[in-house]
Simulated assay, not measured.
Amino acid sequence: MTYSVKETFSPSVRAPSGAPGTPGAPVTTPDPGALAAKVRTVAPSMTRSMQRVADAVAGDPAGCARLTVTALAVRTGTSEATVVRTARLLGYPGYRDLRLALAALAAQQATGAAPAVTADIAVDDPLADVVTKLAMEEQHTLADTAAQLDMTQLEAAVAALAAARRIDVYGVGASSLVGQDLAQKLLRIGLIAHAHADPHLAVTNAVQLRPGDVALAITHSGSTHDVVDPLRAAFDVGATTVAITGRADGTVTQYADVVLTTATSRESELRPAAMSSRTGQLLVVDCLFIGVAQRTYEAAAPALSASYEALAHRHTPRAGRA
């Protein structure tokens, strides 16, 4: 029996997911402990006024839980409508439900059951505080990415990669580094994989793919043209396409048979979004690699051993050198 990812995950048959608060959309109220993670995930898609509301409720859940919708609007310099829209975007039917979640979150934090939201790094922060804040943010990103990974989509991506004749990986900037990491991992277990950072070469290679090959795009924003274009070209020629992105509604998903989402966090002055997005991307890459290595273990194990042996002599001092 031939496994076909495209038949199952083609965008033409994938049902669109409704946003919270829209007619017909399923309402799933987040657990209070997941509120801070939800704020980090949806913040990039918020307006500036909505971000002020989200920052307030995530930064001071106990204080905001005591405020009426009018009082919170005044505190954040926004409007009551903005507060309600923010609550709905965070996954709550209305502000009353958000207040209940804030009260529960405050209680959890008081007992140490839920961590406080990590503050942005300030210019005058001591280096020790920088280390603590970065470590906490990295932990959040990893935990959030793991929690939201769709196992069905991950399994489909692993199956496609394991059976692929050839694998092309596309990414630019920080995502290019992640793509190179995935490609070299796959090469070491005997798969034919290449990472393309040059957008022209990426498209040139993409049109040479065929059904059974895999094209994998990595783009945090989901809309980087230099990554979307080669994936679209690969999709058009029938290759199985995979996207790793921080935006499930990004343009890249229109051409992806399989979509793997990573957690997002808002960019700050001293911490570009690329730093946290790369952390989530690397976790997904490691999950893909381990899944493929498990599925192809009989061939992967000796290939990995051979690569270790080939590189071993490069760590040994040559004769005649100190």
Score class of each variant (00 low, 15 high):
66 R>S: 12
195 A>P: 00
91 G>N: 09
153 Q>A: 10
152 T>M: 04
321 R>T: 15
145 T>L: 02
109 Q>L: 02
91 G>A: 03
125 D>R: 02
112 G>A: 02
30 P>Q: 12
247 R>T: 01
281 Q>V: 11
172 V>Q: 10
62 A>S: 13
111 T>H: 08
277 S>F: 11
312 A>G: 08
15 A>K: 13
306 A>H: 05
72 L>I: 04
298 E>V: 10
266 R>M: 08
175 S>H: 07
62 A>M: 06
60 D>S: 15
166 R>A: 09
286 D>N: 08
177 L>N: 13
313 H>Y: 09
289 F>P: 10
110 A>W: 04
128 A>P: 00
180 Q>M: 06
55 D>V: 10
65 A>K: 10
146 A>T: 07
89 L>N: 07
164 A>L: 11
312 A>W: 09
3 Y>T: 09
135 A>L: 05
160 A>Y: 03
222 G>P: 11
115 P>W: 08
271 R>W: 02
290 I>A: 15
72 L>R: 14
213 D>M: 13
257 D>F: 01
315 H>N: 11
253 T>V: 02
322 A>L: 08
217 A>K: 10
175 S>Q: 05
94 G>S: 13
32 P>L: 11
55 D>Q: 14
198 D>N: 14
84 V>Q: 15
46 M>D: 05
55 D>C: 03
225 H>P: 01
74 V>H: 10
291 G>C: 08
182 L>V: 11
319 A>S: 15
234 A>V: 00
138 E>Y: 01
256 A>G: 12
237 V>A: 05
238 G>A: 03
177 L>F: 12
72 L>Y: 15
119 A>L: 02
61 P>L: 02
201 L>F: 08
38 K>L: 05
192 I>M: 08
272 P>Q: 04
142 L>T: 07
221 S>V: 06
115 P>F: 05
273 A>M: 00
17 S>E: 07
312 A>D: 13
175 S>F: 08
312 A>P: 08
41 T>K: 02
214 V>R: 12
259 V>N: 01
92 Y>Q: 13
64 C>N: 11
99 R>D: 06
178 V>E: 03
206 A>K: 11
4 S>L: 13
23 P>I: 12
73 A>D: 10
191 L>R: 14
296 T>M: 09
313 H>P: 13
110 A>G: 14
71 A>H: 04
245 T>L: 01
19 A>Q: 12
38 K>A: 14
142 L>P: 06
294 Q>P: 01
81 A>Q: 14
139 Q>R: 14
32 P>F: 06
122 A>V: 02
249 D>S: 11
128 A>D: 07
20 P>L: 02
187 L>I: 12
160 A>R: 02
186 L>A: 11
34 A>N: 00
146 A>V: 05
304 L>I: 06
126 P>F: 12
267 E>M: 04
138 E>H: 13
299 A>P: 12
41 T>D: 07
139 Q>F: 00
312 A>E: 11
191 L>S: 08
